[in-house]
């Protein structure tokens, strides 16, 4: 990829942005190790690096906090990349896993597994989430499709399907009171109490799907030129679109499967990245991924700190950050669409 950058000077923007963001994430991760636990401070966290932290504290941090920090990275990356792809493919700045129903669909799928088949192993929950997410996405696409998908229709159908899934989730909760608490926390989106086995379970998804998306980066840009021109440039438009949509839905669904319905990260991370590095997929994707990870790390740390010793699920914090940002985006796009191109 650096070879491409060298030969096409204007086609690549600086790699400094994603690399810088990754460094920020690393610092956030270490700082996050020292947050929210009674006896451990940020000093201990950075002490890990210099070896000045005593081994008992270090082992607490690494056992209990390291998995959830790794999950923050993975979930943030998965949701952000998914959102970036959806916004590009649907050519709709408001597209995101939450908006087009994937998140709630995956939530419902996972709940069905969790509550109806308590005997099912933990490994089955992602399968349920994945199936639910894909199904919801298909439904939304089918209802919104009318020789193309308009921004507004997609958002509206997404909201409707999300509401239906939400109703299903609530029904399941009411039917299965004993499991309510775990279910509720999971539904808000939480990385609390996750172990390394969750990380290992989720890691392959990210390791396989994200490179596949990057492999399609230039084709994503070509799709952004519009269907006719993309076809004129030799791109099998419909096929490519379905493949990348499936990748995006799979990424979002697998993230929801492991961390619950964490909202807004998939919407706002790509937007912020686009402002920093522009719209070309090859630089947009890594930047969005790192911003997604940073958002998760910050939100999770905030959730651990603000109401100590109570923990606020990370999904609640991302919603508090993301909701206003989404309203701001809505207002901005409304302005640009009414004032004409």
């Amino acid at each position: 990829m650096t070879a491409v950058a060298l030969k096409e000077p204007t086609q690549s923007r600086s790699w400094a942005v994603p690399v810088g963001l990754a460094l920020i994430c690393l610092v956030l991760s270490v700082a996050s190790l020292g947050m929210g636990t009674a006896d451990i401070g940020i000093g201990d966290a950075f002490g890990l690096l210099t070896g000045s932290t005593d081994s008992a504290t270090a082992s607490i941090m690494l056992t209990f906090l390291a998995p959830r920090i790794l999950l923050c990275w993975l979930v943030g990356i998965a949701l952000a990349v998914s959102g970036a792809v959806l916004q590009g493919v649907i050519r709709n700045p408001l597209a995101a896993p939450d908006i087009i129903g994937v998140t709630k669909g995956a939530g419902l799928g996972a709940m069905l597994m969790l509550l109806l088949f308590p005997a099912a192993t933990a490994g089955m929950i992602p399968v349920g989430a994945f199936a639910g997410g894909v199904l919801a996405a298909l439904l939304v696409y089918a209802f919104a499709y009318r020789s193309g998908t308009s921004a507004i229709r997609l958002a509206l159908v997404g909201i409707a399907i999300s509401a239906l899934c939400e109703a299903g989730i609530r029904f399941l909760i009411v039917r299965n009171p004993p499991d309510i608490n775990a279910a509720l926390i999971w539904l808000t989106g939480s990385v609390f109490g996750r172990s390394m086995s969750d990380v290992w379970q989720f890691l392959p998804w990210v390791l396989v799907l994200v490179p596949m998306v990057v492999f399609y980066a230039r084709r994503l840009d070509v799709l952004g030129l519009g269907d006719d021109l993309a076809a004129g440039l030799g791109e099998p438009v419909e096929r490519t679109r379905r493949i990348v949509l499936l990748l995006a839905v799979a990424l979002a669904s697998s993230a929801v499967a492991v961390a619950g319905t964490v909202g807004f990260v998939g919407l706002i991370a790509p937007h912020m990245a686009r402002r920093l590095v522009g719209g070309r997929a090859l630089t947009l994707l890594p930047s969005a991924a790192m911003i997604g990870a940073a958002l998760m790390l910050v939100s999770d740390s905030i959730g651990r700190v603000v109401l100590q010793p109570l923990e606020i699920p990370v999904g609640l914090v991302t919603a508090v950050i993301g909701g206003p940002y989404f309203l701001y985006l809505l207002a901005r796009t409304a302005k640009t669409t009414t004032s004409g191109k």
Binding site: E8, T10, Q11, R218, D221, V222, G224, L225, G226, D228, L229, G232, L233, G234, E235, R274, G278, G279, R280, K341
Partner: peptide, 23 residues
Amino acid sequence: ILPQMLVAPESITVEDLVWFGRH
């Protein structure tokens, strides 16, 4: 083929646009 009603992606330079022709 140059279709009708073309909309360039946001903030793309002329050179970047022309590079798409090599796709």
